[in-house]
Simulated assay, not measured.
Amino acid sequence: MKPIIKLSYVFVLMCAIVCNVNCKEKAMKGNSENDKVTASNTVTISRADYGVTKIGDKVEEFTLTNKEGMVVSIITYGGRITSLKTADKEGRMENVVLGFDSLAQYEENNPFFGALIGRYGNRIAKGKFSLNDTEYTLAKNNGENNLHGGLIGFDKVVWSVEGTEENDNSASLKLSYLSKDMEEGFPGNLKTTVTYTLNKDNSLDVLYQATTDKTTIVNLTQHSYFNLSGDFSQLILDHKVEINADKFVPVDGSLIPTGELAPVEGTPFDFRTAKLVSEGINADNEQIALGGGYDHCWALNNADAGYRSVAKAHHPGTGRTIEVFTDQPGMQFYSGNFLDGTLPRPEGGVYAKRSGFCLETQHYPDSPNQPNFPSVVVTPEDKYETKTTFKFYTK
């Protein structure tokens, strides 16, 4: 009987070993399949409550993240980018856009940090324009001029969430806002949607779309302030900027275009070859003096070509670079001249003059009053659509 017991024991032991091996193989296969699912989900989007406005509107925050570690946070109040984290040449992740750490601060007067701008980005002279023989009067919220849509522009409203989407290559947040007929003095019910899309290659697309039921004017843009050093106590004078433009838009004393397009050659406005911001920002130049630095629109080259690369900014210390692509004819390069040291930074301290810069793709300022500028008129038969991309990398 003993040999039988031994054989039975051996048989049971062998079965256990085989079962153990098979289980491990199944487990390994299962883990591999799970890993594949996770790996394919390269860009994600999440939602959180952000707060409630003074008038009781709920504000949400959406965070888009890709596998490279780039993280973009957007709130529905003003469609604002509140944080954009990307790596430096050593792989360190830091936020590179100026902002606040509370909704209450965004509701107070601030220089449009991270906001969507509309209906009309930039200035309209004396707050007036004519369309089809009708004169329209807008708020004068920038001296004698209208700026960035008026007293309650698109930066100061809560946008609706049309939907979110994520896949192997990108994650998108689609926001919408209905600007009613004569809101801030602009004609027509304007339905606007803006879709932010973070891609796996560290590019952020901003797609603007709008339709109207009455002929109107539209000029939308995005007003993030960048500081690629990731250290907002440092100024942006050590950034190198390149703008593909042979001409820029000179302005008068109230920063309204004179109507001409002037050559950049031989002026501080020549960024056709990358150069430090510090090289020309304090130059003895009338236009520099009027803007308090750079606060001008460049007439971008190859406007007929549509969507193309138009500008770059590079921070030599961290290696971070931002490249701008757009189908727009112009871009406002603003060097943060009106930051005055009164606004608090989330990490402590204050935002000093020139601690951030903007690259606002758009039509030219005051286009409704400048017959020689590209038209900003949109009719009920038109669909306004334009795309800008901010791509981040290191070198």
Results as ranks from 00 to 15, higher is better:
residue 33 E to T: 01
residue 334 Y to E: 03
residue 326 T to L: 04
residue 69 G to K: 15
residue 326 T to N: 12
residue 198 L to V: 05
residue 366 D to G: 09
residue 227 N to G: 02
residue 25 E to P: 03
residue 73 S to Q: 12
residue 238 D to L: 00
residue 307 Y to M: 05
residue 294 Y to V: 15
residue 211 T to I: 00
residue 297 C to K: 08
residue 18 V to Q: 06
residue 395 K to E: 04
residue 288 I to A: 04
residue 376 V to I: 11
residue 392 F to D: 03
residue 2 K to Y: 14
residue 377 V to H: 14
residue 192 T to W: 00
residue 26 K to A: 07
residue 74 I to A: 12
residue 270 D to N: 13
residue 257 P to Q: 12
residue 56 G to D: 01
residue 353 K to H: 14
residue 128 K to E: 13
residue 376 V to R: 04
residue 316 P to E: 09
residue 179 S to D: 11
residue 50 Y to V: 02
residue 362 Q to S: 04
residue 291 G to E: 12
residue 220 L to Y: 05
residue 262 A to K: 15
residue 155 D to F: 08
residue 102 S to Y: 13
residue 320 R to Y: 01
residue 209 Q to C: 01
residue 376 V to C: 13
residue 51 G to P: 00
residue 352 A to W: 01
residue 122 N to P: 03
residue 38 T to D: 09
residue 247 K to I: 00
residue 231 D to S: 04
residue 22 N to C: 13
residue 194 V to S: 05
residue 236 I to G: 11
residue 33 E to D: 03
residue 194 V to C: 01
residue 101 D to T: 04
residue 20 N to E: 06
residue 45 I to S: 08
residue 189 N to F: 01
residue 290 L to V: 05
residue 191 K to I: 06
residue 382 D to W: 10
residue 366 D to F: 11
residue 300 L to E: 14
residue 57 D to P: 11
residue 49 D to R: 06
residue 118 G to R: 11
residue 79 G to H: 12
residue 323 E to R: 14
residue 384 Y to A: 06
residue 370 Q to P: 08
residue 305 A to Q: 13
residue 242 E to P: 01
residue 22 N to I: 10
residue 303 A to C: 10
residue 333 F to V: 06
residue 196 Y to S: 01
residue 131 L to E: 11
residue 87 A to R: 15
residue 307 Y to H: 06
residue 223 H to E: 10
residue 332 Q to W: 00
residue 322 I to D: 00
residue 33 E to W: 05
residue 125 A to L: 09
residue 74 I to Q: 02
residue 297 C to T: 09
residue 161 V to G: 06
residue 326 T to W: 12
residue 2 K to M: 13
residue 123 R to M: 14
residue 50 Y to T: 02
residue 385 E to P: 05
residue 207 L to M: 10
residue 288 I to V: 11
residue 41 N to G: 05
residue 15 C to D: 05
residue 169 N to M: 09
residue 44 T to L: 12
residue 9 Y to S: 09
residue 214 K to Y: 07
residue 264 V to N: 06
residue 395 K to L: 00
residue 13 L to V: 07
residue 66 N to Y: 07
residue 19 C to F: 15
residue 334 Y to H: 02
residue 32 S to V: 04
residue 262 A to C: 06
residue 289 A to I: 05
residue 30 G to Y: 08
residue 387 K to I: 02
residue 212 T to Q: 13
residue 298 W to T: 10
residue 214 K to M: 00
residue 5 I to G: 07
residue 101 D to C: 03
residue 40 S to P: 04
residue 38 T to R: 15
residue 376 V to G: 03
residue 127 G to D: 15
residue 395 K to D: 08
residue 54 K to Q: 10
residue 100 F to P: 03
residue 373 F to A: 07
residue 283 A to C: 01
residue 384 Y to V: 05
residue 228 L to C: 01
residue 90 E to Q: 06
residue 154 F to H: 03
residue 318 T to Q: 11
residue 353 K to A: 09
residue 150 G to R: 03
residue 96 V to T: 10
residue 244 N to W: 10
residue 82 T to D: 08
residue 199 N to T: 03
residue 195 T to M: 13
residue 49 D to E: 04
residue 193 T to V: 09
residue 345 R to A: 08
residue 295 D to V: 08
residue 133 D to N: 08
